[in-house]
Amino acid sequence: MVDDIAGLLPRTREAVLAAGERILADFGAPRDVRRKGRIDLVTATDLAVEAFLTTELARILPEAAFLAEETAAQTVLSGLTWIIDPLDGTTNFAHGFPFVCTSVALYDGQTPLLGCVNAPILGQCFTAAAGQGAFLNDAPIHVSTTDSLEAALVATGFPYAIRENLDEIMTDVRAMLDATQGIRRPGSAALDLAYVAAGRFDAFYELALNPWDVAAGVLLVAEAGGRVGGYRPAVPYRLGDFRILASNGALHEGMLELLGENEESEEKEESLRQPGGIIPPGPP
């Protein structure tokens, strides 16, 4: 366990902000864009940012292991671990859409200790440390006070395995469009969660995400006064679970009811979950 979590956060933030300079430099002219899967992209920027962060974070906390998107293997999450998504929203980045970020979190097993989500194109850096609150560019943030689904702006995302989950996705989108003020799909789960923490979105849900997509955002929402859990089934969330729901708390039960329990099998969830709650990365 780390004794001074709050003391680690400024150094972590500094490293993530420095990594953001590479994203800024490459934005508008991404290099070496290639496919990891049918619609899953990786760029030279993803790889460069991840290499930079693993070097810098190892200096900050040498005893911690790494779970990073571009270099992860099937891994059990245990002990101190840096969890890194170097460029969340790579497809956005490749198309010049600015909703992209870097997400870095430090966990002890399944316990989040600190998190940083930096959106360099937007000039927004979200940070949190366990028990210390959540911040945007050093100003405190809090989840919204919206308590009506009709007044709620809800975010979601669509997984790379969209064909395999299309019926479920469309059923949920239909329910959200009918019952809420609106639904948004910006394309970066880490930023979606940060926006829930900042009260810009009232709730967020998605399926088939990997730990690096949500690790920092989960802590941001919790420290900003929100609630994070699973849905179908409505269980406490663990990194690697198939479905995640984050909300301002006031809307959580309503969102669960809206998403509803269906016959979408828990067998599917268990087949994707690995020991320690980690989903293996997608195809290379």
Rank of each mutant, 00 (worst) to 15 (best):
E257T: 15
E70Y: 11
T12F: 03
L41T: 01
V2P: 08
T180Y: 12
R238G: 02
V76D: 08
L191M: 15
I183A: 13
E50G: 05
E63D: 14
T171A: 14
G230E: 00
N165Y: 15
G96F: 07
R22K: 09
A29D: 10
G133C: 07
G217K: 04
A175G: 02
P159D: 00
L87G: 01
L259M: 01
A208P: 04
V49L: 06
A105W: 07
C116K: 05
L219R: 04
E14F: 01
L245E: 08
G37N: 14
H95D: 06
E21I: 05
R273E: 09
P120Y: 12
C125W: 05
M255Q: 02
E63M: 10
I141G: 06
R35F: 14
D85V: 12
D138I: 09
T43P: 06
G249W: 04
Y231F: 15
L207D: 04
L220Q: 06
S148M: 10
G37S: 15
E21N: 10
A139C: 06
M170V: 08
L41W: 06
A197W: 02
L258W: 14
R185M: 15
S103E: 10
A58I: 03
E168D: 11
G249P: 01
A64C: 11
T146I: 11
E21Q: 15
V214Q: 03
P283Y: 08
A189G: 05
A250S: 14
D178N: 09
G229L: 00
L122R: 12
V33Q: 12
Q132I: 08
L245M: 03
P62F: 10
A203Q: 03
M1I: 10
L41C: 02
P186T: 04
S144G: 13
L122S: 05
L153P: 12
E267R: 13
L191N: 07
N262E: 10
E63P: 02
N248W: 03
P186L: 09
G131F: 01
E257R: 15
G157D: 15
L9N: 10
L220K: 04
T90G: 04
F93A: 09
P236W: 00
P275C: 07
L258P: 11
L245Q: 04
L256K: 00
F242G: 01
I279S: 13
Q74D: 15
D178L: 13
I84S: 03
R184Q: 13
V100C: 09
R31C: 05
L80R: 04
M255N: 04
L57I: 00
A18S: 11
G277D: 08
A73D: 14
T180A: 14
G89S: 09
V173G: 05
P62C: 03
G157Y: 13
G131W: 00
D32Q: 14
G131A: 12
R232F: 00
Y195T: 13
G226P: 07
G260Q: 05
E270R: 15
T127K: 08
D138T: 15
R227H: 14
L177E: 14
D4C: 08
N262M: 01
N248G: 11
A190K: 01
E267C: 00
L80G: 06
G7M: 01
I83M: 11
